[in-house]
Design a protein around this nucleic acid. Structure first.
Lengths: 139, 139
DNA sequence: TTTCTTTTTTAGAAGAATTCTAATCTATTG
DNA sequence: CAATAGATTAGAATTCTTCTAAAAAAGAAA
């Protein structure tokens, strides 16, 4: 890990009020040094193992949630059996390939949601999530 | 349960190639005799218990899935810890009240999704799901 | 009906994902 | 460096869901 990369990641954590521990830095590196990612806890854990980083699954979960609470990650709910975390925290939507369980971003401007009806009394919008579920065409 | 109601529900099950067993009829009644509903397995199970219907949780799950496979129900994925089943099987979207965990329908025509970008090669759309997540305004 | 076959139900075990516990360790502060 | 607040961890526990395999019920055939 280059020195400057490390500095950037460390600042990112500090700005989010998270101590840059060895584990957090390793996770931040896996998450943010390879473009936008959509990842599950188990998958991140095995990537960490593969990278030779000693980190428990409990810590993965703790950190995924802390990162999410600090706005460093966003949770995407597409599958009732697993949680996905998205490193792209700007407003956007998703394709979800049901067979492979993979997600792909849809840029906010590539899709328009209009005419949202008036909200129930006393409520406000937290987010508008569009999931376009897709499958391979079978011939 | 009125005789005619029972006949209607029984036909509904038969049309879906499901034998109208005592348990299925009881579930169908809970699901379809009170307007559109969004319900979890646990909740449906306790409603059945309350109604004095002897039915195991395994049967609830079996039937929710069979109903879904036959198009009598539709699964709505909004919460990574629980599955919701919707008795409204026509295309529409949802408000999801995050604090209470309740769903509310948004009629298809009340909301427009436009400009879906071209799909990844070799795929087709299975569904387009919009979830408007809402929360109580806190003052 | 009676019999046969297929489907359904069930209790309880098993599984998978996630959270909790409470002990140990680490980072930061004074 | 010492104190303390925060972080990590193994493993247990929890929650939701699925599986298993045996018993019960439904439908079909005679």
């Amino acid at each position: 890990m280059s020195q400057s990369e490390l500095v950037v990641l460390e600042k990112k954590l500090r700005d989010a009020q998270l101590r840059p521990t060895k584990q957090r830095l390793a996770l931040a590196r896996l998450l943010y040094s390879r473009g936008n990612r959509h990842i599950t806890a188990e998958r991140l854990h095995s990537e960490a193992m593969d990278a030779g980083v000693a980190i428990s699954l409990a810590t993965i979960y703790n950190n995924l949630h802390q990162f999410t609470a600090s706005g460093l990650l966003r949770e995407v709910v597409v599958d009732s059996s697993r949680s996905y975390f998205d490193t792209n925290i700007t407003p956007h939507h998703h394709f979800f390939h049901e067979q492979s369980g993979t997600l792909e971003d849809i840029a906010k401007n590539d899709l328009k949601v209009d005419n949202i009806p008036s909200l129930p009394q006393g409520t406000e919008i937290s987010s508008v999530d569009v999931i376009v579920r897709i499958n391979s065409i079978r011939r």
